[in-house]
Design a protein around this nucleic acid. Sequence first.
DNA 1: AATGAATGAGTTTTCATTCAT
DNA 2: GATGAATGAAAACTCATTCAT
Lengths: 192, 192, 192, 192
Amino acid sequence: MPKLGMEPLRRASLIHATIAEIGAAGSLDVTVARIAKRAGMSSALAHHYFGGKDDIFLAAMRQVLRDYRREVLSRLKKAQSPEDRVRAIVEGGFAPSNFRADTVCAWLNFYVLALSSDPARRLHRVYARRLRSNLTHAFRPFVGEQAQKLANRAAELIDGVYLNQGLAAADPDGIRAAESVLGVIWREIEGA
Amino acid sequence: MPKLGMEPLRRASLIHATIAEIGAAGSLDVTVARIAKRAGMSSALAHHYFGGKDDIFLAAMRQVLRDYRREVLSRLKKAQSPEDRVRAIVEGGFAPSNFRADTVCAWLNFYVLALSSDPARRLHRVYARRLRSNLTHAFRPFVGEQAQKLANRAAELIDGVYLNQGLAAADPDGIRAAESVLGVIWREIEGA
Amino acid sequence: MPKLGMEPLRRASLIHATIAEIGAAGSLDVTVARIAKRAGMSSALAHHYFGGKDDIFLAAMRQVLRDYRREVLSRLKKAQSPEDRVRAIVEGGFAPSNFRADTVCAWLNFYVLALSSDPARRLHRVYARRLRSNLTHAFRPFVGEQAQKLANRAAELIDGVYLNQGLAAADPDGIRAAESVLGVIWREIEGA
Amino acid sequence: MPKLGMEPLRRASLIHATIAEIGAAGSLDVTVARIAKRAGMSSALAHHYFGGKDDIFLAAMRQVLRDYRREVLSRLKKAQSPEDRVRAIVEGGFAPSNFRADTVCAWLNFYVLALSSDPARRLHRVYARRLRSNLTHAFRPFVGEQAQKLANRAAELIDGVYLNQGLAAADPDGIRAAESVLGVIWREIEGA
DNA sequence: AATGAATGAGTTTTCATTCAT
DNA sequence: GATGAATGAAAACTCATTCAT
């Protein structure tokens, strides 16, 4: 009896192991062999499923972005006011499922990978554009024309917070991080 | 007597080449051989002067931080008002000498290196602490007790701007970046 | 299923090639690449199986000691008199399987390696202690209390013979060597 | 005023440093740079004086043999009986100036070097032949025709003692070593 | 489908050696 | 005579990737 439907499970395992391994190493200097071992299979199989190391990384990066997106979208769906929408976007980014040490570490590494890898850059662009678009829409009811500029600043601040949380000694604290960012945003809106 | 006093020149050459090479590659996956070639010498000599690849990276990182510091300090020295002091710190960080594509790229890579390398982390800590300390002092005349909290937010924002400029397609624009950050800061001060 | 059970074969091949290569070179200045080539595989595989050059050397050293031990033990098993036991130990050391040019050369090099490498020293200690212990037991029926002192002298003589055979132009002659050593031993026993 | 007669001093310094460095390392894996540094000069100068690393080693080996020879000859000169002559040869080899940890270590390493280096082998041959010749002459009054065979055994034993002292944990004890060897020799003579 | 086996290509690192001054 | 400067060559080691089974 051949095991059916193993492929998606294996792929998920590998992606998860990739993020965990990057988180543990703190860098992308992680071998396929170690990732595969953590995922409980041979490195040959990892290549078989993904084609190569870069593809594994990209798949992991996509997973991180997908998780991020899911958190934001689910919050946006429940939002009932303009304020809610802004909070949805910010708090989604700092949701516990995204904002763990592992994930933040992988996130930052992927960020920097986008400096040297074209596919990674494309992926990052998608995320960046979507975040700004979301923020712009959310800000428009408050600041109209200036929404885009404000969205940009907010996005930069969010990235900065990620960066600093990744480097902080303590475990990331999503709730405080979100509050801090939201505080700045409300003040920016008021001052606009 | 042989050609004397080459060491400091060579070291400077190598550090410069390291930053340039990281900038060109967009990552730390840069060989000592390439760095040495760019600096016009053999890789053996690079090892001779620095001991090893990590030491070359650290020396380059120190150089980037030193350059940064110099810009800030020279501006602080000329500052004549509390406002001037805040501007000195922010604008120093976005001064043309620091805020070039190469340097920003190296900066970001060093940032992420600090996640996996202890000496890099120590170096980063020094920078981070100093920046917050500078900002805190600069904010105190405006917001008193809340200076530290505000300094933290400002530091995060600055890092976020760096990150986004590094990933942007266009060349970094230090003047606009500084203005944008300062804008947020003044509004934060007002809103505090 | 891939070709299975290669590992022990490869390891044995490599160990054999190591001894041969050291014998041919007359020193430990032997590259992993050459050893691997002689064993019919890539140097990468040698590293894969042993971890590193030192580990290859240690494994070869262990093999030499194991071969030595086997010869001695098999002779001791057949021994039927105190005289037989003494002969077993000495002749075992000069058995054709141990006392070939290659092996003697490797042996001497390992001896000297024990001066600078801790694991090699530990291995050598095991051999030295075992040889003395064997000899002491064998001598006790003849000389009682003085067995240990005599064992020490005999061990030194054996090592000296090895050393000189290794440096002699001619191929080692185990039978004459054993006779010579045994001659001294019997006279020492008589004179004790 | 040019420094006159520096060359012989420099050479002696280097030779001394070589033996010390080999003693400290326990092996011939010693860099010319370290030797030169210990001798207080640049490695370039070491090359200038000796031509190359191998020549430095050979010169050091010659020095060790010369020291050995001097000790034996000075004792032989004072010898007043056949017994004295035998003792002179053996005790000369274990004289404090030769039988120090450093020297024994260098000696053993040179011994093994003779397995792979032709000039080293030639040097070793000279020593070996001379030792046997000395011993043969010294033994002739006692055992006549069998002197040569006995000389061979004695030489082997001496080497064996060196080898074991080099590997022993404790500092070499020349007096006991000489006594032990002489004891065997007298018994061999009696039993001949 | 899955893996142990195997390797080529690349990178850091070390050092003896040379050379201009 | 003496040395700092410089390098070529070689070696250990790593790892993504391929392949036969």
